[in-house]
């Protein structure tokens, strides 16, 4: 079970359905929700400044959002996570089936998976296994 999960998603309905799915599957202890990439940047900036803060193990990141898209957020995050947030993984979620998105997403080493919505129970177990596996590596 993941201790801290961060969701960056602007759609209320999607977030509601997502939270129901997560809790039904007991996927995470703490779930924090942000509305766009800009809020994500602020969140991680604050984390980096606070020595006692705990970085999320997994971020579910939507692509199309107002103010700052998921891509823009990733561009910022890529240069920070290795030093400041080495235990944080990113899973992108999108409604688009554009194959270019897969290619683009693979360029960011922090991204573990790009998942086309809606998320299913199978997706969650896959992510959980990945997370266990990852922990073992460190």
């Amino acid at each position: 079970m993941i201790n801290n999960l961060l969701i960056i998603e602007d759609e209320e309905d999607t977030v509601g359905i997502l939270k129901r799915l997560l809790s039904a599957n007991h996927f995470a202890k703490n779930i924090h929700v942000l509305r766009n990439g800009k809020e994500g940047v602020d969140y991680f900036e604050a984390l980096a400044a606070d020595k006692n803060g705990t970085a999320p193990e997994l971020v579910l990141l939507d692509i199309y959002m107002p103010e700052m898209t998921g891509w823009d957020f990733l561009d910022w995050f890529t240069y920070r996570y290795k030093n400041d947030f080495p235990n944080t993984s990113v899973c992108m979620i999108t409604v688009s089936d554009d194959p270019q998105y897969q290619q683009r997403a693979s360029r960011y080493s922090c991204v573990v998976e790009l998942i086309q919505k809606p998320l299913s129970r199978q997706h969650l177990s896959y992510l959980r296994n990945f997370q266990i596996h990852r922990k073992r590596l460190y």
């Binding site: 759609e11 309905d13 999607t14 359905i17 997502l18 129901r20 799915l21 039904a24 599957n25 199309y64 409604v95 688009s96 089936d97 554009d98 919505k117 809606p118 998320l119 299913s120 129970r121």
Partner: peptide
């Protein structure tokens, strides 16, 4: 790609939830 797929994914997501739950009250809500 976005506007139409978004409600579709919502519906699909809700259908996953309905499938997974046994509680009728929750099913009705979904």
């Amino acid at each position: 790609s976005h506007e139409i797929r978004r409600p579709v994914t919502e519906i699909m997501g809700l259908m996953y939830l309905i499938k997974d739950t046994d509680c009728d009250e929750e099913k009705n809500e979904l």
